[in-house]
């Protein structure tokens, strides 16, 4: 299943590395990344594939929230379909 992971928080070195490590640990493949920093505020959007991930979607969501907290970031995951529905005809 393809999903969108959004990461927000105060900018610092190594955020992308940290988040990618969390995802890789759960066998998640990153397909695309878009990232920007506005006034010290870091925003990253990742398109991921959860096919090989052993966790259920709800478990993965909870895991990312928890890891995010530890890293001082807000990490959320949503299925890609909702964005396609809203923004593509």
């Amino acid at each position: 299943m393809r999903a969108i992971v959004t990461v927000t928080g105060k900018d610092r070195k190594g955020i992308i590395a940290d988040v990618c490590r969390v995802l890789a640990d759960k066998d998640i493949n990153v397909l695309d990344i878009s990232q920007t920093v506005m006034q010290d505020f870091f925003t990253m959007i990742m398109l991921i594939d959860t096919e090989d991930c052993a966790l259920s979607f709800a478990e993965l969501g909870a895991h990312l929230t928890e890891k995010g907290k530890a890293l001082g970031l807000e990490i959320r995951i949503q299925r890609e379909d909702i964005f396609n529905a809203m923004h593509k005809i």
Partner: peptide, 12 residues
Amino acid sequence: MLNHADILSTLD
């Protein structure tokens, strides 16, 4: 890939 701004607008 979806547009960065579109995704953020949905979240907003």
